[in-house]
């Protein structure tokens, strides 16, 4: 953990994002979906965030925009983490894919697409990875019924 690097990063990026803060030793950037690819590109090339840790989403029912897509990156050179948050609406839950920048984004975006139905524009293969073909809906959305099962094998009666 290098607080100096973190503050420098925050200062240099603060003008380009909607909000920048430090939470639990991690830089948190809130930005518009359109700015995502540009910021990630800068993080990767200028600030050496070479490890893409995860992409997931948060469903905020009742809020607009409803979904918050959350990214985590790690810099093995500076040993700091950064979290990116961007909101997408329910009608068009789409963000740009990070596959051109990070190969590992491929599978993680497929998982996020499975669970939340976020569409990653540019990901060449958004087939189900943890779920199975024919599964209807997205189970980690808050409006998915908690006990709804979609069996692949007919139950014994």
């Amino acid at each position: 953990m290098t607080p100096g690097v973190l503050d420098t990063l925050k200062e240099r990026l603060a003008g380009e994002v909607a909000d920048a803060s430090v939470s639990h030793g991690m830089l948190v950037l809130v930005l518009a979906p359109a700015d995502l690819l540009g910021i990630v590109q800068r993080l990767e090339s200028e600030f050496r965030f070479d490890l893409f840790l995860d992409v997931t989403a948060v469903d905020w029912p009742g809020q607009t925009p409803r979904f918050e897509v959350v990214y985590h990156f790690y810099s093995t050179a500076h040993r700091i983490r950064v979290r990116l948050k961007t909101r997408v609406p329910e009608a068009d839950p789409a963000v740009e894919s990070l596959v051109p920048l990070y190969g590992s984004a491929h599978y993680m975006e497929r998982e996020c697409h499975d669970m939340y139905g976020i569409v990653f524009r540019g990901n060449p293969d958004l087939r189900p990875i943890l779920l199975y073909e024919g599964f209807v809906g997205h189970p980690l959305r808050k409006d998915y019924p908690k006990r709804q099962e979609q069996p692949l094998v007919p139950y014994r009666s």
């Binding site: 189970p139 998915y144 139950y155």
Partner: peptide
């Protein structure tokens, strides 16, 4: 939940 079979005797 959506993922688990509630007992293998259903299969």
């Amino acid at each position: 939940n959506y993922a688990a079979v509630a007992g293998i005797d259903k299969i």
